[in-house]
Amino acid sequence: MRKCFQDGSVEVVIPSDLNEGQQVRDIIETQLRLHHFEEKEIFGIRLALDEAIVNAIKHGNKMDGRKRVHICFHVQIDRFDIHITDEGAGYDPNQVPDPLFDENLERSSGRGIFLMRHYMSEVTVHAPGNRLTMCKVRKKVPLKGDAR
């Protein structure tokens, strides 16, 4: 289900299906290109989105087909905002071991939230931990005449 609002924001509700998550990422990537985001910015946003949506489906909803993921995003020329809510019990991001510590370097998971924080301007996990908001504020915005 997809709803588009007058201010340009889009709301999507998807089942706990990784392919559906992939489609949402593709739609957002297309919108970022239409708004002239640079390739490097798109790389980082795409990576953060991938981590967030896969987390919601896999760890939040535990792949339960009856549960949904609610996504609301807004792409503007100078910023990208997204809210992702799953129907799981939530988690405390402070309990995730720091992936940069020597003893955690060889852990095969636990880098998702770290990557989101690196590539996005702001990342907030809201209690009880099943709702995430992220934004990317662009440092350099093309002037109207520069848009190609």
Binding site: F43, L47, D50, E51, V54, S108, S109, R111, G112
Partner: peptide, 9 residues
């Protein structure tokens, strides 16, 4: 592109 799940592998 690659994700953190790929890094894990």
């Amino acid at each position: 592109y690659l994700s953190s799940a790929a890094l894990g592998k």
